[in-house]
Design a protein around this nucleic acid. Sequence first.
DNA 1: TATTGTTATACTCTATAACTATA
DNA 2: TATAGTTATAGAGTATAACAATA
Lengths: 150, 150
Amino acid sequence: MTERLDPVLTSAGYLLLKAGTQFHTIIDEALTELDLTGRQFLVLTFAGSADPLSQLDLSRRLGLDPTIVVGLIDGLEARKVVRRVRDPADRRRYLLELTAAGGRLHAKAAAAVADAEREFLAPLPAADRKQLRRLLIDVMTRRLPWMGPS
Amino acid sequence: MTERLDPVLTSAGYLLLKAGTQFHTIIDEALTELDLTGRQFLVLTFAGSADPLSQLDLSRRLGLDPTIVVGLIDGLEARKVVRRVRDPADRRRYLLELTAAGGRLHAKAAAAVADAEREFLAPLPAADRKQLRRLLIDVMTRRLPWMGPS
DNA sequence: TATTGTTATACTCTATAACTATA
DNA sequence: TATAGTTATAGAGTATAACAATA
């Protein structure tokens, strides 16, 4: 009667994997109306962070090859939502800045992403959504160095 | 003093995304010693499930184009861990079967994956690991049709 | 006429190596 | 001599279209 379902398919790991890829798709769809990809949205997010990042810093945080970041930023700079500024202290580096237009675009995108997340987590009551976030923070803090404690 | 961290970077959605991709990498690494990819491991898992699947069924469960599944199964069949059997009821279809060797390989791989998962979730106490799995099941059940209730 | 599996081809994405300018 | 950013090129991975066999 009851379906025999391999334990793998109900494991936290497998579900984490599927949740990640499905949410990635959902985000990309939610951002198409703003003509952004999830990846570009993350660039805006990091570019708007407190301390200015170089392209190499950014490539590490995105987990992307530096050569890929070049094109990514080219596109966003052409749209004037991000700016490359030479670091006076080390003139090999560019520091990435969010322009005013970039800030507005990021705000809209963040709202769209938040909506998508709300819908994705809709099956969970509010307390469980908070709990899920806390658990993910506990798991990932050590794996995302810039989230570190200190 | 305290770092200003964009709320996006501590959202459940972003962390889910990062957890998914990082765990994917970890799984692939854990399976290299068995000469398997995470994707091949999932094929073995589904091929070993109770009701026999066609290649098209499998492509839907993996979320992959059917043309990709062809090559995937070619490789596993050449290794004699999976078999294509014509469905007598509809001779266009192949039903996928796990061979005895395939079952042994899957068992080893599942153990390796379980180890990797344990390590990945090590920051969480046991109760939280159970809780995380339950939350993911609640979120994903509706999105993975074959997990359906009934 | 539609569907399953297959092949061939084109396209996208990514990684590798080599270059420049700065340090 | 090493590093940040860039370019060009080659490779891997993927999707698209067309086909054979079966329904």
